[in-house]
Amino acid sequence: MSNNGRMKVAILGSGNIGTDLLMKTLRSDSLECTRFIGRDLSSKGITKAKELGIKVSDKSIDEILENPDCCQLVFDATSARDHLHHWSLLKETDKIVIDMTPSKAGKMIIPAINLDDAVSCRNVNMISCGGQASIPLAYTLTEVCSGIEYIEVVSSIASRSAGPATRINIDEYIENTEEGLDAFCRCRRFKTILILNPAEPCIDMQATISAKMKKPDIEKIRDAVSRMEKKIQSYVPGYTIIVPPVYENNRVVIMVRVRGLGDYLPSYAGNLDIINCAAIATAEMYADQIRNGLLNLSKARTI
C-alpha cells in the first residue's frame, strides 16, 4: 500500500482502454496509479498522463520488472499476444494482473456474477466489452428459466469507439465473448455478433440478448433482470435496460444501453466504459482485501 492507504497500480498500454482506466483510478478511493506505461512518450495517452502528473514510462514491461516496488497490481491493456509475454514474466513476481485483452490466460471475471472467484487468482480476465454487458443478463435468464435452447448476443458500438486493436481483433472479440457465455451460462449453443455503426452523432453502445425458449414466465424474468441491472449499476452507472424482457418470435429479447462516464472517450463509448468499470471494481476488491489483511498473494493461484 502507498502511504495514503491506496493500492498502487500500474497501467500497461497507453491506448484508449489504458487512458480511460487511468482516469478512473483518479476517481477511486482505494487505487493510486503509480505508473502509466507505453512504448512511445509522445503518444496521446502518455501526454494526457503527464498533464495529470502521473509518472510515465516508455519501457513497457521492463519498467515494472526493474522497479518491482512501483505497484501491487498491473492492468494489462496491450494486446492478447503481448499479454501472454507479460504474464510469463509477471507470474514470477507477486503482482496481481487484470488482463483487459482477449488472451484467455486468466480466470474470467464478471463482477456482478463471480467477483469472489478473483480472490484466489493472480491473473483475471475481463472477457470483452460485449461480454461484460450481456453475459450477466444471459446468466440471469439461464438461472431463472429452464429449457433455453440457444442464446444470442448482438452488440452495436459506435465506430469511433473501436480503436485499431479492436478492429484487427474482431475475431478474438467474438470467440472470447462466446467462451464467456459458455463459461457462465447453462445453455449449449451461443452466438455473438458485433456491429460497428459509424452514424454521427455517435450511437451509444447497445446489446441485445435473445434466448430461444418456450413459454417463459416473463414476470419472473423481469424481476430477476431488474435485480441484475441494479447490481451492475453499482459499478457501471450508465447501464440501463431499454427494452425489458419481451417474448417475440419464440424468443425472449432484452436490450440494454451502456452510456460511459465520459472519462476519456465521450459517453457514447459505453463499450470502453463497462469493461473498465468491471476492471476497476475488481481492482478495488483486491485493494479492500489487502487493506483488511485477507489476501494472501503467495497462496493465490497463478492461473
Binding site: V154, S156, I195, N197, S210, V243, V246, E248, M255
Partner: peptide, 17 residues
C-alpha cells in the same frame, strides 16, 4: 433517421416498441 446499418435487425423491435 437512426442510421442503422446492415446487421442491426434488433433495432426494429426497439423502434416498434
Amino acid at each position: 433517421r437512426r442510421k442503422v446499418v446492415a446487421g442491426q435487425e434488433d433495432m426494429i423491435v426497439e423502434v416498434a416498441i
